[in-house]
Design a binder for these strands. Structure first.
Lengths: 211, 211
DNA sequence: CCATGTGAAGAGGTTCACAGCG
DNA sequence: CGCTGTGAACCTCTTCACATGG
């Protein structure tokens, strides 16, 4: 167990976690793979297979203990601790993300924001003063930021990403519509909203669901 | 050809399209599968296989004609026309998306925004007056909106989505962190930014790349 | 000679079916 | 008896390798 995890499994674990949180609030203390998956649209086998990759958390003939499983999943996903997140680029997207409650709920704390626009530097968004991007490298090195959210224009993304990586940051969530070329030790996830719209566009034209 | 398209193929076509746009601007008129894929991190075989699902666009021994291929890909993805997009929910995320240039560039035109907050209704964002969500159903039926971007709180998403579908909308880009239950004729894509951060969190904890 | 297009092989992920155990 | 845990079957997507044709 733990040796290999399909990409999709991780995304589903996030969904199970969300569901388990609800179930816990509702006071449910045992849940079957069927119940756990149905709201999120996942088959019972898939739920069991996903969980079994990380251990045996259930009781045969009964199901999974909600609170305990929630803890296990949190631990697998690393949600049982706080992550320090830096946000670079305070344009439309960046500004929206500072105040995005969902992040904070899951232990992702945005501790700093940067921009290169003089008009934005020094201004406040959701309690955080926007810093000059010139101070970025000093700050990242000093404060041991875990994850950087990159919300800068496409033509600056690669350059900024390299600087960020040079400061020891190992994980980047990239909102710029470019593929970053970074050393393999760096974990990158891309969030490309235009691609999602294009997938819908394709479906509408071809009358076909695609994932 | 055209009969079946892997989910991932569509996402890659979007990337090829982006790359082709650049190549066209640079005045390149022929491109090999290798060149087309390398910037986006896709193997030559993959590029050829993806394209071959929709036709034979290249010339053996030479490569693909840039402009022509760009046109073909645009046509496959439905980017050769304008899509009318409605945006529901003008919180942090919604507000950011109204001004998101990338959408407009690819033919997605946000023609209307709605919110249920009296303080926001009537205010202007990027040239669009925020309408009362009460007017939504009338508007959607009348104006034949193609795609709706749902940026409302999680606990309202399902209800609003059902209304939207009731107005004949066939495609939804959902930013709420819930799985929508909608008739199969409706195309839904989910954009869940927290899940992406969780994937990074997992990678950091497990020192493992996951997709 | 070079790069496409594609059948075949290979990986990777999902579903099935049932043994196992509370 | 009920539901988990899991090997095996299945299916889908990716990579390989080479015939094809400009």
């Amino acid at each position: 167990m733990e040796s290999k995890a399909p990409t999709a499994t991780i995304a589903r674990l996030s969904r199970y976690y969300r569901r388990l949180t609800h179930l816990e609030v509702e006071g449910v203390d045992t849940v079957s793979s069927e119940t756990l998956g149905e709201v999120e649209g996942v088959t019972p086998s898939q739920v069991r297979k996903d969980l079994s990759l990380f251990g045996s958390f259930g009781t045969k003939g009964l199901g999974y203990p909600v609170s305990e499983l929630k803890g296990k999943v949190a631990s697998i996903l690393g949600l049982d601790r706080k992550w320090k997140v830096g946000l670079i680029g305070m344009g439309n997207v960046g500004s929206a993300l500072v105040g995005y409650k969902e992040f904070h709920k899951q232990g992702f704390e945005i501790v700093v924001t940067f921009d290169n626009d003089k008009r934005k530097i020094g201004s406040k968004r959701d309690g955080l003063v926007v810093k000059d991007v010139e101070e970025m490298e000093d700050y990242l090195k000093r404060e041991k930021v875990d994850i950087v959210i990159l919300a800068v224009p496409a033509d600056q993304a690669q350059k900024v990403a390299e600087k960020v990586v040079g400061c020891g940051v190992r994980a980047i969530l990239n909102f710029a519509p470019v593929s970053l070329k970074l050393p393999p030790k760096v974990f990158v996830r891309n969030e490309n909203m235009a691609i999602e719209l294009e997938a819908l566009s394709f479906s509408l034209v071809n009358k076909k669901i695609i994932g």
